[in-house]
Simulated assay, not measured.
Amino acid sequence: MRLAESFYGQTSTRQKSGARGLCVYVCHPGGAKVVDAIEQAMELPDGSLDAERATLREAGNMSAPTVLFVLKKVLESGTSGQMMACALGPGFTASYLPLRVSEGAK
C-alpha cells in the first residue's frame, strides 16, 4: 500500500469512484497463496483482488502476462481511475505500472 500512496497519496480500494487519486490494484495472480499474501501485505480489504482470483481460477497462472487478463476483467467491470498494475517475474522480481483509466474504457 505504501507504494501506491507514494504515487497517489491515497489508500487503496477497488471501488468504482470518480474520486481523484483512487488507486486500484491490478495484480498478477501467481497463485492463491500469492494473492492472499499481496492482499495481506498491502493491507487491502478482503475481496479487493477478486478479479485476480477469478482469472487464476479460469485460466491459471500464465506467467507475468496474466496481469493483462486481470486488467481486462477490471475494465469490463466498469472500474476506472488511478490504477497500479503489478506483474511478478522470475525469482523475487516485480514490475509496477501506474495507469489512469477513463470512465467507460473497456
Rank of each mutant, 00 (worst) to 15 (best):
C23M: 11
L68K: 01
A32W: 06
L88D: 04
G104N: 01
P29N: 12
H28G: 05
A59F: 15
L44I: 02
G81V: 11
A19I: 07
A64Y: 03
F7Q: 07
V101E: 03
K106A: 09
D50Q: 06
A37Y: 13
L75H: 00
E76V: 10
D36Y: 03
G81N: 07
T11A: 13
G60F: 06
V26K: 00
M84Q: 13
D46V: 07
S17G: 04
T55A: 08
D36L: 03
L88N: 06
L56N: 09
M1H: 10
K72D: 09
K16P: 11
T79M: 11
L22F: 04
M84K: 09
L99V: 15
K73P: 02
S95Y: 00
F92S: 07
K33F: 12
Y96E: 02
V35M: 06
D50V: 07
V67D: 00
T93L: 14
F92V: 09
G21I: 01
A51H: 11
R100I: 11
P65G: 10
C27S: 03
A41M: 10
V35G: 08
Y25L: 08
M62L: 11
P65K: 05
S48D: 01
L44E: 02
D46I: 04
V26Q: 00
F92P: 02
A59C: 12
A54T: 15
L22N: 11
Q40F: 12
E58I: 15
K16W: 13
V26D: 00
G18F: 03
A105N: 06
D50T: 09
Q40G: 05
F92Q: 07
G18H: 05
S48R: 00
F92L: 10
G31L: 09
E103A: 14
L3T: 15
G91T: 06
K16M: 15
L56R: 10
Q15N: 13
A37H: 14
G78F: 13
A41P: 02
M42W: 12
E76G: 10
A37L: 14
Q10A: 13
K16D: 13
A54K: 14
N61F: 03
E5R: 11
G30L: 04
Y8Q: 02
S95E: 00
V24R: 07
V26I: 06
C86H: 01
G81H: 08
Y25I: 06
V34L: 13
E43T: 10
V74E: 05
G60P: 06
R2T: 10
R57H: 12
Y96F: 13
V24T: 12
R57F: 06
E52W: 02
G91S: 07
A41S: 12
Q40K: 15
A41Q: 13
S6G: 14
I38D: 00
P45H: 05
C27A: 07
